[in-house]
Design a protein around this nucleic acid. Structure first.
Length: 411
RNA sequence: GCCGGGGUAGGGUAGAGGUUAUCCUGUGGCCCUGUGGAGGCCACGAUCCGAGUUCGAUUCUCGGUCCCGGCCCCA
């Protein structure tokens, strides 16, 4: 009987893993230079953490379970809630703003399809303690920088929920939720029907439709005409000016709605081509979640990048490491082991582990695409030297250990 | 949860209700005990799982499972 991978999980072969680790390191360098610190939260949490944030309905999409102590737990489906919990539990006294990032696996019980797995990785940032235009702009610019560093050509859309919320101020909360949902899904027919059904005024209807059809980068003045010069738009304008300064390319979209109540102002999404139906590679915004978890009224801004989706379209190739195979004879094998230890301070070194004969060791070096072979035979030991063979050119030299190190450690 | 298409060695494939299931590649070994890439030989290695129909199923039927694409959802 063979056991297979659980559905929606993946094995990463050596070359896959090397690519993923490389892109990960590129992204880590970016956030590090923006001054963000990495945190790690538990792989599983109390079920409550996520139902509190997203409602009971998400249980159907969770890998939840009861442990032997009868606790209701779940593998994490995302990391914003865990980070907020961590903040409330431990980080409240830390200097603000808190600039955090994570790179972790998450689990969702969903039907797998292109760009969607049951175990997937998220690279995310949370900036806690500032709700100002500057922090909104920084977070967007950082997302942009990360995607660019990974070689992703994305389409950045930025919206602001305050605008549509202002328009809907007079409506019942549940109606507002419904409207936001329809707006987010761009179901304009349904939206029109709903507005008709609740007897919305003509002015409101036309305002909503004008607003959600605003397109492009310079639609802020028109938004102001619709809702007036509300404070949120003044802040938003500052955010956008900063983004121009950061050199971020974006378009405005006041139709990004995000159903959930804790999104307060700025929201953004990045879409990329080549991913089929699951095109969104990044999503984020400013939110108020901390109060929900028992903390104060602390504004935050963050985003998550779908790392697996990025890997689908990322053109980055990890730099190849030069490697070396030591070829020895039975009589010189111990000496080869000693040399391996020394050479391993400089580059990856392989030594025969299968008691192969001389020729077979060279064949092995060839099949693994070794860059160098160092021959440790009787002749070499007698002369106190080594034979260095360049496997690409085929050339050989008779050198001292120091000379070998000098040559092979150059790159 | 729903719809559609799939599943033959590690990868890629051929064929077929009935003898030992084809070929390429791969891996290990040998030809070749101090010189790799070519070639030859040998070995390893598969019908996704279960039930049904049948004298006989890898092939037909059903169920499951996994993969691919889409719907729903997307915190």
């Amino acid at each position: 009987m063979t056991v297979n991978r659980p559905r929606g999980t993946r094995d990463f072969l050596p070359t896959d893993t090397a690519r993923r680790r490389y892109v990960e390191s590129v992204m880590r360098n970016v956030v590090r230079n923006w001054g963000y610190s990495e945190i790690i939260t538990p792989t599983f949490e109390h079920l409550d953490l996520f139902t509190l944030k997203s409602g009971e309905g998400i249980i159907g999409e969770l890998y939840n379970f009861t442990d032997k102590g009868g606790r209701d737990l779940t593998l994490r489906p995302e990391l914003t809630a865990p980070v907020m919990r961590m903040y409330v539990n431990e980080l409240q006294p830390f200097p603000k703003p808190l600039k955090l990032f994570y790179f972790e696996n998450c689990f969702r019980y969903e039907r797998p399809q292109k760009g969607r797995f049951r175990e997937f990785w998220q690279f995310g940032v949370e900036l806690i303690g500032s709700g100002r235009p500057d922090s909104d702009a920084e977070v967007i610019a950082l997302a942009d920088a990360l995607l660019k560093a990974a070689g992703i050509q994305g389409d950045m859309k930025i919206g602001n929920l305050a605008v549509i919320r202002t328009l809907l101020k007079g409506l019942e909360p549940e109606i507002v939720s419904k409207v936001m949902r329809l707006v987010d899904k761009k179901e304009y027919a349904g939206l029109e029907a709903l507005l008709e059904e609740i007897g919305a005024e003509e002015q409101l209807k036309s305002d909503i439709f004008r607003l959600i059809h605003l397109e492009g980068k310079y639609t802020l003045p028109q938004a102001k005409e619709i809702v007036g010069n509300i404070p949120e738009l003044v802040s938003f304008e500052k955010t956008l000016k900063l983004l121009d300064a950061y050199g971020v390319n974006y378009s405005l979209d006041f139709g990004i709605a995000r159903g959930l109540d804790y999104y307060t102002g700025m929201v953004f999404e990045v879409y990329a081509e080549g991913l089929g139906a699951q095109k969104q590679v990044c999503g984020g915004g400013s939110y108020q979640l901390i109060k929900l978890f028992g903390g104060g009224d602390v504004p935050s801004t963050g985003f998550g990048i779908g790392f697996d989706r990025i890997m689908e379209i990322c053109p980055l190739v990890p730099p190849a490491l030069k490697n070396l195979v030591l070829v020895s004879k039975p009589e010189t094998h111990l000496e080869a082991a000693k040399l391996a230890t020394t050479l391993r301070n400089y580059l990856p070194v392989h030594i025969d582990l299968m008691e192969r004969n001389f020729k077979a060791q060279l064949t092995y070096a060839n099949t693994i695409n070794a860059d160098y072979v160092v021959i440790v035979g009787e002749k070499e030991l007698e002369a106190g030297k080594l034979t260095l063979k360049d496997m690409v050119s085929g050339e050989q030299e008779f050198l001292t250990l120091e000379e070998v190190i000098e040559k092979v450690s150059r790159n």
